[in-house]
């Protein structure tokens, strides 16, 4: 410390830079390695002939994997399922979440406990949620939904056989609705009541207050919720793994599950890498739009 006081000015700032970098770099470098090295390896493998079951077949394959995979109808259906899953869950959770956020902003008896009950599904680990729905809710014999349908005289539905993707959308929406309610409720509560009161004085009805005061106020929270949910929904895996294993056929296989099928069930590293790149490209297209609107709303 005493030595630095007689050093020239630029030397002090140089030492500062070193000290600062020493603080920042461990986190930045590990994240950099984590995000770049596997990506480069995925790109490299995507051009190679590489199957763990046939170690003797190696070498450069050009666009062979790409040609093989892009003509595979399961890829198109997996992309379709991924988009459908993400979009349906977003619409359901944000739509219902907004309504419920308004509901749980009202004063009523036991509101604290009711809120806690609504939040519970979000903290339940995905494998438990999936098993719970599969065995105890949607099971055609023992499920609670089957009981409900029988008691009104209907024939129980075998959910995962008849509507596998819809069933998964229901489960995932159940898991993510609480998150939407929680973020949107936080945002609703930050709206000052004077503005609502003033609008009411001016003769605005409940719908108008919702439409012209509340919704614009929620814009930022909604954009954040959409972004975070999209990140997690693109990677939905455990729910499919536990319930349908992607079936019947490829009916409920999304990109995550398709890659898992290629890589760890068929040991086709090249094919899985191409599918991995498709997932990354898809995420980046979405990220481009989401991050732009999100960054604008951010006070860094």
């Amino acid at each position: 410390m005493t030595a630095s006081s007689i050093q020239p000015e630029n030397d002090v700032s140089w030492r500062d830079t070193v000290a600062q970098s020493a603080l920042r770099l461990p986190a930045i470098v590990s994240l950099f390695i984590w995000s770049i090295v596997p990506l480069l390896m995925t790109i490299w493998f995507s051009f190679r002939r590489y199957n763990l079951m046939e170690p003797e077949r190696t070498g450069f394959d050009g666009v062979g994997n790409y040609r093989y995979l892009l003509s595979d109808p399961s890829l198109t259906s997996a992309i379709g399922n991924t988009v459908l899953l993400v979009c349906s869950v977003l619409v359901i959770t944000i739509g219902l979440g907004t309504l419920l956020a308004v509901l749980y902003d009202q004063e009523f008896f036991g509101r604290g406990i009711a809120r806690v009950l609504v939040l519970a599904p979000f903290f339940i680990m995905p494998t438990v949620s999936a098993l719970l729905w599969k065995n105890m809710m949607m099971h055609p014999d023992y499920g609670f939904l089957a009981f409900l349908m029988r008691s009104v005289g209907l024939k129980p539905v075998d959910w995962f056989a008849v509507a596998p993707l819809t069933s998964i959308i229901i489960i995932v929406s159940w898991q993510w609705l609480p998150f939407a309610v929680l973020t949107l409720l936080t945002a609703v509560q930050s709206l000052d009541s004077e503005r609502k009161e003033a609008a009411r004085m001016d003769g605005a009805n409940a719908f108008n207050i919702f439409r012209y005061i509340l919704l614009p106020h929620l814009e930022r929270a909604i954009s954040a919720t959409v972004m975070i949910e999209t990140i997690f929904l693109l990677g939905i895996f455990a729910e499919i793994y536990v319930t349908t294993s992607g079936g019947p056929g490829f009916a409920s296989t999304n990109l995550s599950f398709l890659i898992y099928r290629y890589a760890l069930l068929e040991y086709d590293i090249g094919g899985a890498s191409v599918a991995g790149l498709v997932a990354i490209v898809l995420a980046n297209i979405l990220a481009f739009f989401l991050m732009r609107s999100f960054a604008r709303n951010l006070d860094v």
Partner: peptide, 10 residues
């Protein structure tokens, strides 16, 4: 934003 599954193989 990078989906985990994209880097499962490496």
């Amino acid at each position: 934003m990078m989906p985990s599954v994209g880097v499962l193989v490496p």
